[in-house]
Design a protein around this nucleic acid. Structure first.
Lengths: 189, 189
DNA sequence: AAAAAAGTGTGATTTAAATCACACTTCCCC
DNA sequence: GGGGAAGTGTGATTTAAATCACACTTTTTT
């Protein structure tokens, strides 16, 4: 929980009492490899802040092919936000790729925290601001860049992830086949 | 300005005095066809709320090809948020496609409004929430859907836009060539 | 009202990437 | 520690979409 406090305080300072109350909205969950946090078709009760481990958020098409919308590591937030905010069924899946822990927050929790603490509303707004800007960049990249450029951008943005996760999944994130990705760096990148 | 009030009050009610003060942060600007609101390479001083007209936000690559990140019509917000929030140079362009009006808001304005009025911070958070969810869906679609599926999704989401803007630009939004898009609906969709 | 610019449909050709196929390696998990 | 699953590289083939080319239409501009 101390990690959560640090995370929030990167954006806004909290008093001890405030944090004592705020933290009651979060529940800790340990997650093992291959475990699902969100499953397509189910309601989405929580959003997740990663405390440790690696997760992927992905869409599964009719033929069983995966398309990775997001990876998530420590301090990343992860959810199928369409289902979560609008109380629909998940179209995305979230799975643990490397054992770790997450904190879970319900939508009511999020809204209550935002309503009760201007600070927390501010915190969420700043996080969303950053996230929105990042997604805008990702869209630009998906539209305009070649696979090799996307690979380069990715390795600059997440140099550590490149080492730690199978290239197969990086291909699924970049929107190319694993074979094409493999040829990108065996040939002259 | 009444339209702005209505727009904000879709999310949170405002007293007359509140709105009187809030509106001072916005400046009105009439925009003619082909006019730029944001130009690649420049600093991004404002974000824009559209009161009327149609706008496109796009990336221009080295060969002069356009890739449309977003269209914007009444009540849509539009900006190169990476440049705006992080005070960098624009990599995107925003241009008027059909004469109209926008309200302009500086980053300090936005932050001041958010700090002074919990309500406004709430308003911005809700707008970002919706926007984030929409971009998450767009990414899923760009990764996993075929051009024909993306075209169908687009025409369901924005049936009116389909009529009103040249198909050429819809192609640039969907990430296909205009020829391919043209063949999609001449053949059996 | 005429000229220019922008947008559109459709065929022919090229091309980048997907798919298929298979051998090899590494990672887990019983 | 051995067996199966998961991941990887590389060639051959197929395929969807980009590109090129051009005629035609519509919209803007002056």
């Amino acid at each position: 929980m101390e990690r959560l406090r640090k995370h929030i305080e990167e954006i806004t300072p909290l008093s001890d009492e405030e944090f004592e109350h705020i933290k009651t909205f979060f529940t800790l969950r340990k997650v093992r490899k291959h475990q699902y946090l969100i499953q397509e078709g189910d309601a989405v009760g929580y959003e997740y802040v990663v405390l440790g481990g690696i997760f992927k958020l992905f869409y599964l098409d009719g033929e069983g092919k995966e398309y990775i919308v997001q990876f998530a590591r420590v301090n990343w937030w992860m959810c199928d936000y369409n289902a979560y905010f609008f109380k629909g069924k998940a179209t995305l899946n979230a799975v643990c790729m490397e054992e770790g822990e997450v904190l879970c927050l319900t939508l009511q929790g999020r809204e209550k925290l935002s309503a009760d603490y201007h600070k927390m509303e501010h915190f969420f707004r700043v996080k969303l601001t950053n996230g929105y800007a990042a997604l805008q960049r990702r869209i630009t990249s998906l539209l305009s860049s070649t696979p090799q450029e996307r690979y380069r951008e990715f390795s600059e943005l997440y140099p550590n992830l490149i080492q730690e996760i199978p290239k197969k999944y990086i291909a699924e994130y970049l929107g190319v086949s694993r074979e094409t990705l493999s040829r990108l760096y065996s040939n002259g990148k």
